[in-house]
Write a protein that binds this DNA or RNA. Structure first.
Length: 224
DNA sequence: GACCAGGCACATC
DNA sequence: GATGTGCATGGT
């Protein structure tokens, strides 16, 4: 049966009607969004906000200031976000790339194509596909669809994709069916996270989900 | 106390 | 190639 472009836009419209605009990504600057993309790896956003508040309070939320910190020192500020040792390392890797290749300027990054940016970001240790796409879409405002665990879970639960689908396949699922539009990609991903949080917990079946009418005729998750 | 949270890299088979 | 594991805090 499959999911057409029209199905997917209806899916989007019903989420938007239900939840309204999500105003992603929360953050005062694009650089803050970039930092948040690393800190939120497998972590609740509330905890990330505490770590970002620590950085702000210490006046460290700039490429130059972060670049000057040792990993150990940085880790102390990142504690509330969890995995603080590894995140200090990953954040420094990202900042070093930004400082050494682009003089700490996000403006210079915007001159590059999505493909080139993705390739560059993915070469940084600690930046995987979701983090790279989040930075490109939410900090650099260029069109790339962000996939996360909620995206996978929501789409599988509603039988839009196969349980075996990997990141790139899910990304293509959206990009093949949607106009290449930064605002649409921005809002759609944020809405999927919202419906996922409310109705798509790992060990619970969806209850009163606004998307139930969009279930497609495919094998179930338990057939895996 | 168990489960979950806007992943990623690395070891091992 | 696929599967398993470490990383860690804080809320429910």
């Amino acid at each position: 049966m499959g999911c057409t472009s029209e199905d997917l836009m209806e899916f989007y419209e019903s989420l938007y009607a239900h939840y309204g605009p999500q105003h992603w990504w929360p953050g005062e600057t694009d650089f803050e969004v970039m930092v948040g993309a690393v800190l939120t790896q497998n972590t609740n956003w509330q905890n990330v906000e505490k770590a970002i508040a620590n950085l702000k309070a210490a006046d460290l939320l700039s490429p130059q200031a972060l670049h000057a910190q040792t990993e150990k020192h940085l880790g102390a500020y990142l504690r509330p976000a969890g995995y603080f040792n590894i995140k200090a390392k990953r954040l420094k890797n990202l900042i070093c790339w930004l400082m050494e290749g682009f003089d700490g300027s996000l403006e210079e990054l915007r001159d590059y194509s999505v493909g080139r940016l993705r390739e560059e970001l993915l070469s940084i240790n600690g930046v995987g596909r979701e983090t790279a796409d989040s930075i490109i879409l939410y900090a650099l405002h260029k069109p790339t669809f962000v996939v996360d665990t909620y995206t996978y879970r929501v789409l599988v639960r509603h039988r839009c994709i196969d349980v075996e689908s990997d990141y790139e396949q899910i990304k293509e699922f959206f990009e093949d069916r949607l106009p290449e539009d930064v605002e649409l990609y921005n809002e759609f991903h944020a809405l999927i996270v919202q419906v996922g949080k409310n109705h798509c917990k790992p060990r619970a079946h969806c209850v009163n989900c606004p998307l139930q009418e969009y279930e497609h005729d495919r094998e179930t998750e338990s057939n895996r």
